[in-house]
C-alpha cells in the first residue's frame, strides 16, 4: 500500500501516472479561470473526464458497487452472518453465483458487505487524513516561516517512516475496546496526512503569490477569508485527484491489516479476511479465495482509473 502513498504524493512517483497514450491529453488546469466560471468548468471537466474510457468504466463500476453494496442488502434483506447449514461450500449455483462458505453463507452477499466496509473505512479515513493534512498544510503554506519549516520537517519524518510499520504500531497501541472501524479511521488517517499536507502546502504557496490574492490582501481581507475565498477553490482539483488515489490506498491498508489480525472483527466480512481465510482452503475450494480477490482487485483498479481520469482533468502539474 505504500506504493500508493507514492503515487499520491511523491513527486517521483507522480510521474508514474499514465501518459496520453491511452488516456488522452490532459488540460493544464487554469485554476484561476476555473474559479471564476465554476459551472462552465465543471461541464468542461466532465467532458474531458468522459474522454478517458477506463475512467468512465471505473466510475460506472464504482457507482454500481456502491449501489449494490449499500442498497442491495437492505432491499433484498440479505444477511452476511446467517448461513444455511445444508448448503455449505457450494462452488457455484443459480442461487449462490459466488458459492457459499463453510458456514453456508452466500459469498456474493459477503463480498458486498466487504465492499461496503472497505468503502466506508477508506472514505472516512481518507477524509480524516485530508482534514488533518489540509489544516496543517494550509497553515504552513499560508503563514510560512518557522512554522512552515517545522511542519515540513514533520512531513519528511512521516515520509521516512514506512507507512505499514506505523500503521501496525498505531493499531496495536489503540485499545481494543474501540470499534475496529474507528481505530482504522484514526490509524489510517494519522499515517496518511503528510502527503496531503505537502500537496496542499505547495498549492497554497503557489496561490498565495497570485496577483489577485495580493490584491485581496491589499484591500485588507483577513487571512482566513483569503484562504476560504481564493485559495481553497483553486486547489480543489489536485485535492480531488489525491483523494481518488488515497481511497484505494486506504482500502489496501485496511485489508492488509486483516492479514496480521488487526482488521475488522468477524463475522463482519472484509476483503482481507475473506482472502486470507479462503487462501487456507485454496487447494480444495478455490472459489473461496477467487471471488474476493477478483472483486477487490477490480475495485482497486476502478478507483485508480477514476483517479487517472481526474488527473487528466486537472492536469498533471498537480
Amino acid at each position: 500500500m505504500e506504493e500508493n502513498e507514492n503515487t499520491v504524493v511523491d513527486p517521483l512517483a507522480g510521474q508514474m501516472l499514465p501518459d496520453e497514450g491511452l488516456f488522452g491529453p490532459g488540460t493544464p488546469a487554469d485554476a484561476a479561470a476555473a474559479a471564476r466560471s465554476e459551472r462552465v468548468g465543471w461541464r468542461h471537466n466532465f467532458r474531458v473526464f468522459c474522454r478517458h474510457k477506463p475512467a468512465v468504466a471505473g466510475l460506472v463500476y464504482v457507482v454500481l458497487l456502491v449501489l449494490a453494496s449499500f442498497l442491495g442488502p437492505a432491499v433484498f434483506d440479505l444477511d452476511y452472518e446467517k448461513g444455511d447449514a445444508s448448503e455449505t461450500l457450494i462452488p457455484f449455483s443459480a442461487e449462490h453465483p459466488f458459492g457459499t462458505d463453510q458456514q453456508g453463507r452466500d459469498l456474493l452477499v459477503r463480498n458486498l458487505y466487504a465492499a461496503r466496509n472497505a468503502i466506508v473505512v477508506a472514505v472516512v479515513s481518507v477524509l480524516v487524513g485530508l482534514l488533518l493534512g489540509a489544516l496543517i498544510g494550509a497553515f504552513a503554506g499560508y503563514l510560512g516561516g518557522a512554522l512552515d519549516l517545522l511542519t515540513m520537517r514533520l512531513v519528511d519524518i512521516m515520509f521516512a517512516f514506512p507507512q505499514i510499520l506505523l500503521l501496525i504500531l498505531l493499531l496495536v497501541a489503540i485499545p481494543d475496546s474501540m470499534d475496529r472501524r474507528i481505530s482504522m479511521f484514526v490509524a489510517i488517517g494519522l499515517t496518511s496526512w503528510a502527503g496531503y499536507a505537502r500537496l496542499i502546502r505547495g498549492q497554497v504557496m503557489q496561490a498565495r503569490n497570485e496577483d489577485y490574492v495580493e490584491a485581496a490582501r491589499c484591500l485588507g481581507a483577513s487571512n482566513s477569508h483569503i484562504l476560504r475565498k481564493y485559495i481553497l477553490p483553486n486547489i480543489a482539483g489536485p485535492i480531488i485527484v489525491a483523494v481518488s488515489f488515497g481511497i484505494p490506498s486506504a482500502m489496501m491498508a485496511e485489508s492488509g491489516m486483516s492479514l496480521i489480525g488487526l482488521g475488522l472483527r468477524p463475522p463482519m466480512p472484509s476483503w482481507g479476511n475473506l482472502i486470507y481465510e479462503g487462501a487456507r482452503e485454496m487447494l480444495g475450494f478455490p472459489h473461496l479465495v477467487l471471488w474476493p480477490s477478483i472483486t477487490f482487485g477490480l475495485t482497486l483498479l476502478a478507483f485508480t482509473f477514476i483517479g487517472d481520469g481526474l488527473g487528466g482533468v486537472y492536469g498533471k502539474d498537480r
Binding site: Q102, Q103, S258, L262, R265, P266, P267
Partner: peptide
C-alpha cells in the same frame, strides 16, 4: 485472527451464529 491454522476462526463464527439463534448477544474479538 484469520491466519490461524487450527480452523478456530470458522468454528468461532459458527458458535456465534448458533448462540445468536437462541438469543445471545455475542461479539467476536480477534
Amino acid at each position: 485472527p484469520s491466519n490461524d491454522y487450527r480452523g478456530w476462526g470458522p468454528v468461532a463464527e459458527a458458535l456465534y451464529a448458533m448462540w445468536k439463534e437462541v438469543g445471545f448477544n455475542v461479539v467476536i474479538q480477534p
